[in-house]
Design a protein around this nucleic acid. Structure first.
Length: 202
DNA sequence: ACAGCGATTGACT
DNA sequence: GTCAATCGCTGTA
């Protein structure tokens, strides 16, 4: 017996990603991340993010200027920036701010909503709370690798998209410091939904 | 060419 | 709480 899900999905406009990266990181909480192909459908609610800005943020990959890896951060807002780290994990970001300005929002945690059986398989666990409560976990669950770099989440034809929904419950947002960085540890550029059980860390 | 290390995770004490 | 895994990117030469 499966519960019928009837979330309203409202396409997001590119304008949203032109804004300041911290505003995008905050306002994207509660929105829906979806991967939809003929094979699979994964749907989750974004519950934890971090902002990274190349121009004033020593923790950003783009702080020292453009390189082959980070050049997509300088490009069009609303497209995916994915990087590989620690020899093991991929991390998913969405580019923000206008072209020429390097900035992106790291999606750290997702609350699984739909496609959960396959999500569990991808992650090798039945524990719902551990499926996507971390940046490396959610990319494994959503099967996101470097192949997804440059996908435009505002485009209809894209198989990874962001939707707004008016069915989201009310929530409070906590703003705090980012995780796992060496520089700019004191910048309060991490955001998460208060008391949400799918957030990676309090 | 090469040394150092990372926007992490999972296993272990 | 601690720590190893693992490899591509980056800065320096």
């Amino acid at each position: 017996m499966k519960k019928i899900l009837n979330l309203e999905k409202i396409p997001i406009k590119r304008n949203f990603f032109y804004q300041d990266t911290n505003k995008v990181a905050k306002d994207i909480l509660g929105k829906l991340l979806i991967r939809e192909t003929s094979q699979n459908m994964f749907l989750g609610r974004i519950v934890e993010t971090e902002a990274y800005r190349g121009y004033d943020d020593p923790a950003s990959h783009a702080f020292r200027g453009k390189t082959k890896r980070n050049e997509i951060m300088f490009g069009k807002p609303g497209v995916l920036y994915v990087y590989f780290t620690y020899g093991n994990h991929y991390c998913l970001n969405i580019v923000t701010e206008k072209k020429g300005i390097a900035a992106a929002v790291l999606i750290r945690s997702i609350e699984p909503i739909q496609g959960i059986d396959k999500m569990k398989k991808n992650r090798g666990t039945d524990d719902l709370k551990k499926i996507a409560n971390g940046p490396g976990k959610l990319t494994k669950e959503f099967q996101i690798t470097l192949n997804e770099i440059g996908l435009d989440v505002t485009k209809k034809s894209s198989y990874i998209k962001i939707y707004e929904t008016n069915k989201s419950e009310e929530f409070k947002i906590i703003q705090t410091t980012r995780i796992g960085i060496r520089f700019a540890k004191e910048f309060p550029w991490r955001f998460y939904i208060q008391d949400n059980p799918y957030v990676s860390k309090k």
